[in-house]
Design a protein around this nucleic acid. Structure first.
Lengths: 235, 235
DNA sequence: ACAAAGCATATTGTCAGAAAATTATATATA
DNA sequence: TATATATAATTTTCTGACAATATGCTTTGT
């Protein structure tokens, strides 16, 4: 019944499991699959109109990525995010992106930086008549650009796996940022980049991410995993 | 023929693929499987005396971890390590372990530190009549202990996946370190930990790893991915 | 009414083999 | 000889069926 409908997902340049990996990720970000949800291999296979094996392969791949947990003889579940995870995600992100900044100060061309500045100006211009979602997207774009400028593939891979979970956090808990502050912080980032001072750039990025984390927990949580600022950046 | 022999690998508390993941990793570290080698699912399954499916699952999991690359319709190969990879591994490791140090200064108990100091004394005592392999193992133990003290699961997971590749690097290219220097550096680490100064601790760790990297490329390579010290730590 | 035991169902784990794709080998043609 | 074409062999990919295990429900005994 729903077989023919879902077959559209298979643009299938490569193989089934490859597309199923993408499909499941997308469903998690959409909210069709929530953390803690069980994934039933047979059911998913039936819905997609294919057999069990490629579904299993996709799930095994995702378990390797750490997005899905497989309980032996019980089955796969979408990894749930605890409060502790949020702390870990942000703190890891801080050092990952910190190093990216450091490298970007050395590797970015003048044009790269000019483009970032232009993008920022646009972002600031439409600040007041724009949605929070759009702001988040723009923010994400800046961070991704910096990651790309670092030209460090393992850094990017690690970032992607975290970034996915960040998106999960944002989608689950929503986010109302004070737009002005958010925008200002990104100016700091770009200025630090333009100054081409690695030490300062790294510190700025770490502080930026620490502030995001603080904002997040101040809004949503009572108990926090914090251990104080000195766990995040220098003085 | 070799079926019954290899069956011993399956202590099999959970399921086949779980053990095959461990088996393949072990074979890579042993050198039975080298980077760039192809893995033929049917052959491996036949050798182990089981069917193809669990082998495939294990390989899919490993591809998720990034240890194996799957070329669609061609098959899995053990990911090869380029020179560039070595740079990326060390630099990523520097920030990962840097953060671990930072956290360890806050989370380690006095006893934890005392144990590390005791271990170090032992290590130094047997310095002269010990092999390089044994020294490397001791060094690894210290690093792993610090990771554990950080009590940061995502950090540890990232570290593990790098650590695996570090071991690959070491086994492929060998390593004759100047033992004395190597040992001294670890003293610095433990002292920084004992001082419980997060900033200093992080910097010490980063410098330590940077030095390892330098030692490595000075020994083996001509061309280097370096970009200067300021990419690694503050001044 | 409640708990334990046994049965039924659902789901995972494994298998053997067909279908599709790739690679290697051999044959034919210029 | 060299190049292209056809054929064979290998390997991946996928399927459908079955066994092993866990879960939920009913029955039974007290």
């Amino acid at each position: 019944m729903s077989e023919s409908i879902n077959k559209q997902f298979f643009m299938d340049k490569q193989n089934f499991s490859h597309d199923i990996v993408a499909l499941i990720k997308q469903q998690i970000l959409n909210g069709e699959l929530s953390p803690g949800d069980r994934i039933v291999e047979t059911r998913l296979a039936r819905e997609l109109g294919i057999s069990q094996t490629p579904v299993r392969e996709a799930i095994r791949h995702l378990s390797g990525e750490g997005i899905i947990t497989i309980v032996p003889n019980k089955g796969p579940i979408v990894k749930a995010l605890e409060k502790r995870d949020v702390f870990e995600i942000y703190s890891l992100r801080a050092v990952i992106e910190g190093l990216a900044m450091r490298m970007a100060t050395q590797l970015a061309s003048d044009q790269d930086i000019a483009e970032l500045e232009a993008f920022y100006d646009e972002m600031r211009a439409k600040l007041h008549d724009d949605t929070v979602d759009s702001l988040l997207a723009d923010s994400l774009h800046i961070h991704q650009t910096i990651m790309r400028l670092s030209n460090h593939s393992k850094l990017m891979k690690t970032y992607e796996s975290i970034s996915f979970q960040i998106s999960m956090v944002n989608r689950i808990l929503g986010k109302e940022s004070t737009k002005q502050k958010e925008v200002d912080q990104h100016l700091e980032l770009i200025e630090a980049l333009a100054a081409r001072d690695p030490d300062q750039a790294e510190k700025t990025m770490r502080r930026h991410i620490y502030r995001s984390y603080r904002e997040f927990i101040d809004m949503k949580e009572e108990d926090r995993w914090e251990y104080g600022e000195h766990l995040w950046f220098e003085k």
